[in-house]
Design a protein around this nucleic acid. Structure first.
Lengths: 262, 262
DNA sequence: CACGGAAACTCGTATAGACGAGTAGCCCTC
DNA sequence: GAGGGCTACTCGTCTATACGAGTTTCCGTG
């Protein structure tokens, strides 16, 4: 038997100039906000909403697409429409690249994820020489070719981040940096071993909606933006030694920074 | 006479299993990406696309709503659908709260905007005592009442940011901080004058889609996320003296930070 | 020439119907 | 009891139509 009439929902106001599909979206949104539908709960089916409000199915679908665009719900073909579960958030601390955090065998991502009780994975690892975009080249001081290290990070099977590191060839070629696994401490440890002591990192953060390609790679639900982070690493001589271009599922991250007051 | 047939667009592949509305969205997206439609350009009207592809209007609208959700286009009632103009971006530097940047009369926002050739405004200014949310209270060390300073920032008439500062009453009451205009250098200058020398700021950054209220306040187009930034200011004794909760139009900002390598 | 208004064009909202495809549960068969 | 298939339910895609409302254009009137 189908579930009972959605009693948590009210009636439409025919005198309002607010469009019917917006009124329906408002009521569903309010019910979600007030916890009458909780994370992962199934919303009334389209057919039930059609019945309850006495409107056509396209109107109901329009309402639901509003909520999808807001990132409140996700729909699953053949199953229903569900309140979007909020995954555990990964917090990136401002000291995450401090030397003391460089691990002996595992990557920082792996260690941190396991400490948080998640199952970390890295896939799509690809290391190759290529011609950089104008922007990457400029940030690195103008090289015409660079080493690019691409990889995707997953937590508990869910992709959360896709990153590409670019390094000048003279720092990376014929070193472990050009290998898929650069060894303990990662590429920053290798750079320092080779005489490029790191001084600081610049990060630029912006947020936007994903391209279809990014949405696919990160398996993003509708209404989930990405955080685009571009980090440049500088050595003590002021040379840019690495640029890392990262696209993160925005619902999986909080970035933390510390700013000086001086 | 209506504009000519949209020759920049191709034909549908009836053998593809990709939905028709996705194929149309793909072609429009590609045309935009390749610059055949530039920022602010008007796309072919729905009627023209119906004509060109030989599909129903709802299918065309479905395609356009995909592109809206990606933030690529905006539609204007009675005018058409346009490639979304990318506004000038405001870059927030990591030293933006350094003492040397505190201005003598105007606010940091005003000075910086004028330097960039924009016309800055601040409105919706509201200062009042209130009971903080659990989260704000915790960050401030547990006060039961706080002073809240709300304001909205605009550049060239466009709202870009809405911010609320919360301060413990014992630091703010009966000082210029409780006035709409706290005077030169802003509330940080006043706090330091009153013996609370600032030591550092913690910032937490996340991104998400706006609530309908936020979309309205910031006049956000569909497909534009917000950056949610929570900053806590600490004095040299380690006390949290202010929490600033800021929601920014993501397409108007790039945040820049500097991280130590040590 | 200036103004007003009609016409044509734009997107917004809503209806009714049809078929397809993914999922889950039930029942019947073996 | 296990397996397979049917059925009911879910959302996905698409058509055709109608009217409303905001914008632009242009023309005719004064």
């Amino acid at each position: 038997m189908p579930s009972a009439s959605p009693t948590v929902l009210g009636a439409l106001d025919p005198t309002s100039d607010r469009a019917v599909f917006r009124q329906i979206a408002d009521q569903l949104r309010e019910a979600i906000d007030k916890g009458r539908f909780k994370e992962g709960d199934k919303l009334p089916s389209e057919a039930e909403l059609v019945e309850h409000y006495g409107v056509s199915r396209m109107t109901v679908r329009n309402s639901l697409s509003v909520l999808q665009g807001e990132g409140l719900v996700v729909s699953e073909h053949g199953k229903g429409v569900f309140v979007r579960p909020r995954p555990p958030v990964r917090r990136l601390a401002s000291d995450r690249f401090a030397r003391r955090h460089r691990q002996q065998g595992k990557s920082a991502f792996t260690v941190e994820a396991e400490a948080a009780g998640s199952r970390p994975e890295v896939d799509s690892l690809e290391v190759k020489e290529e011609r950089p975009t104008q922007e990457i080249s400029t940030r690195l001081g103008g090289p015409r070719r660079v080493l690019a290290r691409r990889r995707r990070y997953l937590l508990d099977g869910r992709p959360v981040e896709f990153a590409v590191s670019y390094l000048p060839l003279d720092l990376a070629s014929e070193t472990p940096i050009a290998e898929p696994n650069p060894g303990p401490g990662g590429i920053y440890a290798r750079l320092e071993e080779n005489g490029h002591r790191l001084d600081h990192f610049d990060e630029e953060v912006c947020a936007r909606m994903p391209s279809p390609q990014e949405a696919k790679t990160l398996r993003l639900a509708a209404g989930v933006p990405v955080i685009h982070l571009i980090r440049t690493a500088y050595d003590t001589e002021g040379r840019a030694v690495e640029v890392c271009d990262t696209v993160m599922a925005a619902d999986a991250y909080v970035l933390a920074y510390q700013l000086p007051a001086t």
